[in-house]
Nucleic acid binder design. Sequence first.
DNA 1: TCTGGGGTCCTAGGACCC
DNA 2: TCTGGGGTCCTAGGACCC
Length: 376
Amino acid sequence: MEVTGMNQFYPKNGRVILHVDMNAFYCSVHASHEPDKYKGKPIAVGGSVEERRGILVTASYECRAKGVKATMPIWQARKLCPEMIVIAPNFDLYRDYSQRMLHILHQFTPQIEPASIDEAYMDITECGHIGTPLEIAKRIQSQLLQEMDLPCSIGIAPNKFLAKMASDLKKPNAINILRKRDVSKILWPKPVRELHGVGKKMEERLHKLNILTIGDLAKESIEHLKKEFGKTGVAIREHANGNDRSIVDPTSVYEVKTIGNSTTLRQDIDDNESLKKVLMNLADSVARRMRKREVMGENVQITIRYADWKNVNRSCMTLRPIDSKEEIYEYALHLFERHWSGSPVRLLGISLHKLIDKKNAFIQMDLFSYMQNETP
DNA sequence: TCTGGGGTCCTAGGACCC
DNA sequence: TCTGGGGTCCTAGGACCC
């Protein structure tokens, strides 16, 4: 490749951002963890409920070659790939591998923002002394492969959005550079759906406006997009033009905004007592995770999914910050009893919103009890 | 035999306060 | 007396991503 130095890559005042994206992460982790059993085999991860209702979370490239995709129902995937080995997810293992991956990235720079369990942004603008962006990317990739046996794709670009698009464009095991000046040549001919942030619904609406490619979107008038899609319209147009001013923020990972658990039932249930038990279990797991994170919540939300896939969310503010299983259950049950239609339920969920640090919660609670005692 | 579970962000209406 | 506008908070719903 023609890139030889950072100065050539980015002339003045620009930034150099990497997006590191692990390939088929959950599958790769299992293959790395138990190579004799899984390496090179057609494995897939999924099926936390019983198999009849399970879907695949990730499929290895061996399975993908046969048309198997993530989020596909397991029974459907088996038709395409009968020899597929389905592994139950082990999130503790993935979290452990994720930490080790981040540890390797930290050897290059502290300017890292984990974007999910298997991807991270790195701002290597100040890393000129270690090497060129391409050299750094190559070293990261080979280190992840040698030390953890995990393949990844890395995008190199002047901002987070383009780095993300760059890593998406070449998989697996690739390094891809996307310069601002190449956006019109590389991104614009592609269908608008390939833009990160444009999903199925947005695609349909854009098609109706005769916006088919990323280039069409880039050239559409801002006023028109603002009228049709509000803030989101302006944002995706900026992205289509290769613009993104957001920064790599290493602290963002610590600011969780919600904690929740949900579960699809083995069968649709309309028995009140059974559903209460499910709620109790959910309250318990949410409470555990909140204590682990040392946060309390001031807003409880429940989700009810009925047999026909209609979702109902109901929420309420709590009297004071809560984190105990009993209190969470009490609010959740109250919401459930007030809003359940009585029809068979497919899924139940509880989540806590408006999270605050436990330390701050105590200050608030002291104030609360003070008010209780001092006001008539 | 359809379709998991963890999130974030945006919109819109209504209540309420000034 | 019957009426404005701005700002914030709460609730509900939905799109999107991994």
